[in-house]
Amino acid sequence: MKKLILASILAAAGTTAFAADTGTYVFGNLGVSANQWTAKDGAAAKAGVSDKKVNKDDATSGMFEVGVGQRINDNFAVEGSYLNHGDATELKGAGKLDYDAFRVAALGIIPVNDQFEVYGKVSASHIRSKFTATSAALQNSKDSTFGMGLGVGANYKLNKQVSLRAEYDGIGNIKHKDITDTAPVGALKVGVSYRF
Score class of each variant (00 low, 15 high):
residue 123 S to A: 11
residue 51 D to P: 12
residue 68 V to T: 09
residue 85 H to Q: 15
residue 127 I to K: 02
residue 97 L to H: 01
residue 50 S to M: 05
residue 128 R to C: 04
residue 102 F to S: 06
residue 127 I to Y: 01
residue 57 D to W: 13
residue 125 S to Y: 03
residue 52 K to Y: 05
residue 85 H to E: 14
residue 53 K to P: 10
residue 120 G to A: 10
residue 57 D to K: 14
residue 82 Y to H: 10
residue 84 N to F: 07
residue 50 S to E: 07
residue 100 D to G: 05
residue 55 N to Q: 09
residue 86 G to M: 07
residue 72 I to Q: 02
residue 71 R to N: 13
residue 51 D to Y: 13
residue 102 F to H: 04
residue 74 D to N: 14
residue 82 Y to C: 08
residue 58 D to V: 05
residue 92 K to I: 11
residue 126 H to N: 11
residue 80 G to N: 02
residue 65 E to P: 01
residue 88 A to E: 09
residue 97 L to T: 01
residue 56 K to C: 08
residue 95 G to T: 00
residue 77 A to S: 15
residue 99 Y to M: 15
residue 75 N to C: 06
residue 114 D to P: 03
residue 70 Q to N: 13
residue 91 L to Q: 05
residue 99 Y to L: 15
residue 49 V to S: 05
residue 49 V to L: 06
residue 93 G to P: 06
residue 77 A to Q: 07
residue 69 G to K: 09
residue 91 L to A: 07
residue 76 F to M: 15
residue 80 G to F: 14
residue 80 G to M: 15
residue 90 E to N: 11
residue 76 F to G: 05
residue 87 D to T: 11
residue 75 N to H: 13
residue 86 G to E: 03
residue 93 G to I: 08
residue 57 D to V: 07
residue 77 A to H: 04
residue 106 A to D: 06
residue 62 G to V: 12
residue 87 D to L: 11
residue 123 S to Y: 04
residue 49 V to A: 05
residue 96 K to S: 11
residue 120 G to Q: 11
residue 87 D to G: 14
residue 94 A to V: 07
residue 75 N to T: 12
residue 84 N to P: 02
residue 100 D to K: 02
residue 105 A to N: 04
residue 87 D to Q: 15
residue 66 V to K: 00
residue 95 G to Y: 03
residue 74 D to E: 13
residue 78 V to E: 05
residue 93 G to C: 11
residue 50 S to Q: 09
residue 73 N to E: 13
residue 70 Q to S: 09
residue 95 G to V: 04
residue 107 L to E: 05
residue 68 V to F: 12
residue 99 Y to I: 09
residue 95 G to Q: 03
residue 106 A to S: 12
residue 79 E to G: 02
residue 90 E to K: 14
residue 85 H to M: 14
residue 67 G to Y: 01
residue 108 G to Y: 06
residue 59 A to W: 12
residue 63 M to H: 04
residue 109 I to S: 02
residue 68 V to Y: 04
residue 127 I to Q: 01
residue 79 E to W: 08
residue 52 K to G: 01
residue 89 T to N: 08
residue 90 E to S: 11
residue 61 S to C: 07
residue 67 G to L: 00
residue 64 F to I: 13
residue 88 A to F: 01
residue 58 D to E: 14
residue 54 V to Q: 02
residue 86 G to Q: 03
residue 128 R to S: 15
residue 75 N to D: 10
residue 125 S to A: 13
residue 55 N to T: 05
residue 54 V to W: 02
residue 82 Y to N: 08
residue 93 G to H: 00
residue 79 E to M: 10
residue 91 L to T: 07
residue 53 K to A: 08
residue 57 D to Y: 13
residue 95 G to M: 01
residue 111 P to R: 01
residue 113 N to W: 05
residue 118 V to C: 07
residue 72 I to G: 00
residue 99 Y to H: 13
residue 85 H to Y: 09
residue 53 K to E: 05
residue 61 S to K: 03
residue 48 G to Q: 04
residue 80 G to R: 04
residue 94 A to C: 06
residue 115 Q to N: 14
residue 101 A to I: 00
residue 129 S to K: 07
residue 91 L to I: 14
residue 93 G to A: 11
residue 79 E to I: 00
residue 106 A to Q: 03
residue 92 K to M: 10
residue 89 T to K: 07
